[in-house]
Amino acid sequence: MIHICITSKSFDGQEILRNIRFDIAPGETIALLGPSGIGKSTLLRIVAGLDRKFVGQVIRPDAMSFIFQEPTLLPWRSALDNLCLVHSGVSKDLARQMLERVGLAGKASAFPTQLSLGQQRRLALARAFVVPCELLIMDEPFTSLDAAWVDELIALTRELIAETRPATLMVTHSRQEADVLADRLLELSGTPATITA
């Protein structure tokens, strides 16, 4: 069980988040909705352990994956190396299988700069799922893609989540994406932001 209890989070004396408490059960997917700039990404960074300057407590597992708003790949390493180097225990065979699984067969030696944005996002997805994770965090993982790519990628993400069943916390602006992927919706609103639904 992932336990999130954020009493307060401030930037330069201004409180951004207050009294945010929720749990994520194994296999459960929660979508976090809310207007831009309300603090959704800050909340994700706190849950991931990237931001430790807050009042409260987050209980999270060590085995964690994060799909960032941008693909955030190593542009100077091949697609295969982006899996094997980031996860040092992953074999090249397993990495190749994962690349095939996300539709990047034959792209193992390509650099991320030689891939389209859609392919880069698939590679980021492969990186997140190539090793088992107990907590998956996704920060608007389908932005800047055209509709056809989004539908394909959502279907693929849904399949991979169903197979591996991590506790998943995602941020999205799209109600449709949230409805397709999430078991539960949480909405952030107000100043400082709290969970209102």
Binding site: F68, T72, L74
Partner: peptide
Amino acid sequence: PQLAAMAQVYRMSWLLRLRHVILPQLA
């Protein structure tokens, strides 16, 4: 900073970060 965050989340070792994340950016 995003690459640093990625390396932190995926718990890359210090040596791997230096070799594959930091030094290529400094190249």
